[in-house]
Design a protein around this nucleic acid. Structure first.
Lengths: 215, 215
DNA sequence: CATAAACCTGAACATCTGGTCAAAATTATC
DNA sequence: GATAATTTTGACCAGATGTTCAGGTTTATG
């Protein structure tokens, strides 16, 4: 997660490095996300950065290393939202809405990241086995416990917390991964803010009954 | 959709053709679904069929042509389930359950097909523009009208039919596309029948309140 | 069974692309 | 400002892989 990059770091990160590295990673996120690992040409990433291919291979020993670094940077950012909104103290329905909105915002503002992750899952997720089986698993289990606690207190109807969590995840993710499908179905050049809003509203309509006063 | 294949068909389909073609398409569905268009080597498909690479290029002029044919065959099968279960006559909740079960069964028994479609969407869906904007769009609109009719009759709570439809789609699709993620989260070597059943149950729990007697 | 169409396949080809390298240019540090 | 580390870059290489092709084999049809 830290430095998959070159120098032995006998100095602090130099100016050109600070400028070039993020640029490469951004371009890589876009390209890997829309073309996949195999479909991506290092030269295309280079082109997006306006630098020669060899320069990228200087910072990252291989295309695959760049892929992993791109993925790693993404996963780091990934989990914060959920922890902020889904906490035991917060009001359940308020937390759910916050989480869904945050996740949906991610799909809207950074769709390539979503797609990169999806690409990786589709092709078997070899590169993120560790993340899936440790970090993400712990993450989901933590939230599952929150749901179970809510259910025990009568604040939430009984529902399998893990599958429910996955349903939230996939439903929001879909607005990035299946963006073209939504555009076709809604007859849009590109999705509007109101479309994402309608998606959120649909979700909330479905979820609200889980949290109505039960007794 | 019909014949993207070779001969001028001055005879009826020959025996070797009837034997080889489906074999190729099956192998192609698996390979394209897990490796993507670029990631797939024609030779791997050939290997799965136990025939030489050149034989595949005899039936399909190019890798891309085979990709399109594979996709086309998939899309043909795709829409039948929905039409069977979501019809105006049928009891709403019964239809919903039937549809979800059918869609989930597809994700379980033919995950590579699901993944192939997802791959195509992720990379922009260039190959299936027509399908998305015409066939699928009409399909979804038809079902949206059924939902609206139910809502007008007071048989279903008000919810955006298109977004709701997409949510059903993506949630069931996820059990194929994000299979590795589910396996990691549920700590399974591979998903069990009970896992898919739990997924269905979670879905139904969420959907049922839409169809309770309203008045 | 003749014969034309369809099918099969090994070998060769052309291209694309990830990666290397050495030499030049730039930057950080004393 | 000297100098050592870092960065940049074009040219080149090697392997992978889609595609062609010619010649041989099998199959359908009369």
């Amino acid at each position: 997660m830290t430095d998959l990059c070159e120098p032995t770091r006998s100095r602090k990160p130099s100016a050109p490095r600070r400028a070039t590295l993020p640029q490469i990673l951004n371009a890589a996120e876009w390209t890997f996300g829309t073309r996949g690992l195999k479909g991506t040409r290092v030269e295309e990433i280079a082109g997006l950065c306006g630098i020669p291919k060899a320069n990228i291979l200087y910072y990252f020993h291989s295309k695959e290393a760049l892929y992993q670094a791109t993925l790693a940077r993404l996963l780091d950012i990934w989990l914060a939202d959920a922890d902020e909104w889904l906490s035991p103290e917060r009001d359940p329905m308020e937390g759910m809405e916050g989480y869904i909105r945050a996740k949906m915002a991610f799909s809207r503002t950074r769709p390539e990241g979503s797609r990169l992750f999806a690409q990786e899952l589709l092709s078997g997720g070899q590169m993120i086995q560790g993340f899936l089986k440790e970090t993400l698993r712990a993450h989901v289990e933590r939230h599952a416990e929150i749901f179970l606690a809510w259910q025990a207190k009568g604040l939430m109807r009984v529902i399998d917390p893990t599958h429910f969590m996955c349903l939230l995840w996939s439903g929001t993710q879909a607005y990035a991964d299946m963006q073209v499908q939504f555009e076709a179905l809604l007859d849009r050049e590109s999705l509007l803010d109101t479309d994402y809003e309608a998606g959120i509203e649909t979700f909330l309509t479905l979820i609200r009954p889980l949290f109505v006063q039960l007794g």
